[in-house]
Amino acid sequence: MTMFEGILLTIVTAATPLLFVAIGELVSERAGVLNLGVEGMMAVGAVCGFAIAHLSGSPILGIFAAILGGMIMASLFAVVTLIFVANQVASGLALTLFGLGLSALIGDAFVGIPGIGLPKIDIPGLSDIPVIGSLVFGLDPLTYLAVAITIAVSWFLFRTRGGLILRSVGDNHVSAHALGYGVVRVRFMAVLFGGACAGLGGAYLSLVYTPQWTQNMTAGRGWIALALVVFASWLPYRVMIGAVLFGGISILQLHAQGFNVPIPSQFLTMLPYLTTVIVLVLISRNRTLLRINTPACLGQPFVPDR
């Protein structure tokens, strides 16, 4: 395996958790719900995945536990914001703080224990092709799942009736209600999907990326994923491009440190977050693009009149 190949592989592994989380948040935001609690859901997913995999010895069970953990957190958010119509921004921030604290509490017993990694797929013959062999056919199963989910979400949103209804709810919830669609029900399911995806992203961290549990191991990835959704102007395939881009930047800064590039390491560590800020500013300048793709009801509470 060449070094170039190695760098590309690490980029893919850095991009995968971002892709999971961002695609889930994209679905939630397309339905009009801004869930700022992704970081918290991700952390709970990571600790649930690690704990159950360790206790049961099965990483597959761990993955399901992570999905469940993310969904429970998401349902908490959904009940508070959709049924009790609390402010989405405040509730989302609270969910992040709560999730980070809860994951630290659950994970206390698991600090320092070596985890169980998910085996990589190895297809004889195909995986041995130089460069693309290991990049296309030799990855861990969760990465394939992330790509499959992205394609499925894109197909669902733009090719199916369910997706049309979901987008209509995010574009104009008053009209969607007047046509007889269950705005709260659609949003609830979208938020749950977002939670499941965030849980998967967390599980990827604690079972594949670095198979162990450390407190705050999500390290702001949830926030980057949130920025990614805006960066992608709510289009799934752009989320994929963005995830690779951001994954690449975070990996390149590691390699730059390895090569003794004469820039203080603190600055290099800043790079992904700095890029996030810069990209968001650049995106906001193009208001035409934003205005056409932004779900018009994003973050707005909905109370049907009865």
Partner: peptide, 12 residues
């Protein structure tokens, strides 16, 4: 007040 969805096409 029209119950249309601005971001969608006529057919949608």
């Amino acid at each position: 007040h029209f119950s249309l969805f601005d971001a969608l096409t006529v057919a949608e």
